[in-house]
Design a protein around this nucleic acid. Sequence first.
RNA 1: GCCCGGGUGGCGGAAUCGGUAGACGCAGGGGACUCAAAAUCCCCCACCGGCAACGGCGUGCGGGUUCGAGUCCCGCCCCGGGCACCA
Length: 840
Amino acid sequence: MTDKTQSPPTEAELPIAYDPSAVERKWQERWVERGTNQVDLAGADPYYTLMMFPYPSAEGLHVGNLFAFTGNDIHGRFQRMRGHTVFEPFGYDAFGIHSENYALKVGVNPNELIPRNIANFGRQVRRAGLMVDWRYAVSTTDAAYYKWTQWLFLQLFKRGLAYKKKGAVNWCPFDKTVLANEQVINGACERCGTMVEQRFLEQWFFRITDYAGRLLENLETLDWSESTKTAQRNWIGKSEGAELSFRVQDLMEFAGSATVGGGGLSGEVISTPVELRVFTTRADTIFGATFLVVAPEHPLVDRLATEEQRAAVEAYRDAAGKQDIVTRKVNREKTGVFTGSYAINPANGELLPIWVADYVLMEYGTGAIMAVPGHDERDFEFARKFGLSTPRVVGRDAHDTRPPTDAAFTDTTSGVMVNSGKFSGQGVAEAKRNIVDWLARRGAAKPVVQYRLHDWCISRQRYWGPPIPIIYCDACGPVPVPEKDLPVVLPRLENFRPDDSGVSPLARDKSWFRVSCPTCGKPARRETDVSDTFLDSAWYFLRYPSADRTDVAFDAARTRHWLPVNSYIGGNEHAVLHLLYSRFITMVLHDAGMLAFEEPFTRFRAHGTIVRDGAKMSKSRGNVVNPDEYVEKWGADSFRTYLMFLGPYEEGGDFRDQSISGVRRFLDRVWASAHEVSREGEPAAGVMRKLHQVIDKVTNDLPALSYNTAIAAMMEYVNVLRAHERRPHVREVEPLVQLVAPFAPHVAEELWEVLGHHESVFDAGWPVFDAALAVEESVTVAVQVNGRTRGTVQVPKDAGQDAVVEAAMAEPVIAKFVTGAPKKVIYVKNRLLNLVIQGL
RNA sequence: GCCCGGGUGGCGGAAUCGGUAGACGCAGGGGACUCAAAAUCCCCCACCGGCAACGGCGUGCGGGUUCGAGUCCCGCCCCGGGCACCA
């Protein structure tokens, strides 16, 4: 059977050589002619498969893009072959700083640059053979798209979910724009790496914090990668704790009909002591509080500062105000100053000095804390520096009462309360509940839930984005642009470079921003900020099925039919922001009665990243893979299949030039098999057995995105198929072509035609697994003696233990280790026999 | 510091429930075909010892549980990513 070469085929018998470029050109044209990739939006059994749409960079398609798209395409093609009507749309996320900075760098207006990039990107994507229905492609930069982004803003505005506030914001001095907290990485701008500064500007925010609880709870219902869910949970950052009130000594608050001022207090003054409220998750440690700390921006700072301390407090606050947000957030030595005031610990009546320190953040909790240096690392550090005491209130046991000396004792699981009055002896969790209850009864505590999540700042003082649809009128205030006047078209600006002024370049175009008020008709001016790119991408999945509609953002019937998205694939770099914002927007529209569901993506999987030679691809390293080159050399089918083969899809892998040849050889062998088929006689039982094992394997691997192992299984089958000196039977090859189709669509179409079919292989269904054909009649059972493998025996499938023991003892190599009667025999059917002689 | 991943041959990686570690592919070695080369086809390929049969050893390190551990438990080390004064 190795004599395949005995009668070499004549020239005429040689199969037509596989020429990928010819095959791919042919089928890409034919798909267009036949409308193969056009989805019937009213089709039955809809399946919406989505991938994160790309930013169309000037450098063109990156292998990482293609890796992501291909994985999604395979999923879509597979679902189609299984009988679904599959919608696999494509689009471009082309607004934003990334595009604008590049335009600035090369000196080309983004209005020209972006369409050029999109054209190039589209060409590359088409070449890769994606099953995209281009009739529903979108670009966020089209007025027909961003009209609805603006509409979306108005929906939030209408519901009080969009508001303007002046706040400390992250300002990138290089990009000259405000950044969301999410876009600041280790204190630096995520785009350019410049250290971010603090500025106070009027900004538009979305009230995503109103949805924090739902965004967190709903995660339980989603079929998402656990790591993505964890990232979202951490970002939302729920903390359950308590708000505690500390009465400030000798400081009163006046209410009622009282008047305060020149003439002193009037007779009917109602005065109450000022309460300083703190948030804590460790109410159990209240007996260990030795001081309080307020943030420099805390509204009570002025009143807390005593005469003697006023100068020091003001100096400290001013210095803190000049610092950028980042410096404050980075770990560094603690600083602070005593206000001169004291507060009363509601638990034991002790007087606690009140400090101002910038390690307490105004944005979180109440902007004030009770410091328990014995049991909090930061408070410990602060207490050390300023010579404050660090008593112990939680010990390893009831006798462990001496103050921690080296570090705070932060263990909350095993500790026992000490030095805590009547709560001493209780466990931490128990004490926490009891102390909050006890203080609550006296009006000094209430249970509170806090989130780390901040409201979403959507203003950008930049050019390349959708103008925020608001008009400012001196008489009427901020007025939303009436929906009938949308879109507010982004005007073409020749000078779109941002400057230090803190206002958008759009503020230079007077003819654009000067308008009359939609309400009163008086002269007014437009908002000149544009919105965050993340807003563009927070709803694009809603737009796709309705991309051809000009009258609505998303058509109700189509949305009902297609959404939520069945499968969403994307990069983990968007695991937090994009997915969180999309979920938020979906919830808002759900609450507005426009969507029946509140979660947009039923299933999400993050794909891995591709590195090359063990390192991230980057221009500076010179290890960037240009897909065009490889498609040219090996064909899109080989390239796609190789990308899926180089590692587990959800982990990515290492790109090696040499290794593509193995995948190409595999496709060559499939090609040859299809051209050599025989229609005579019957398929070989052994081949059919392997075939059905592989059908089963591939059918299970594809939904799990285990593409690399599916390909390995198909390779194994081809090895079996071609191991015999015979022409393969048509029934051995047809299912193979179907299995290969999602990976290598062009070759599969060609071979399907060669095998005599007229319809697209993607409309030919999926091979049906026949368990009876896949069954092996004999199996190899490993035989161990005392747990060490000593050999194998070939036995009939499902053989009983006695038969296997007998077969094993018949093998001298095994029997020689059996030195006595087995004390115990472990038999795992069809797998393993273990004879235990010694031990036990 | 905290939270996620991950560590298996020369390389990329398999091993679904604790059951023959290294599937599949690349690279390498040998052979067939060829005037020759490419392509194709066949064989070998963790490491140590051995001509071989075979034996030993082996999944980052150290312990443990088990008849049996890449897989489970405890304690570490290293690499990649995310968060980072969030009370």
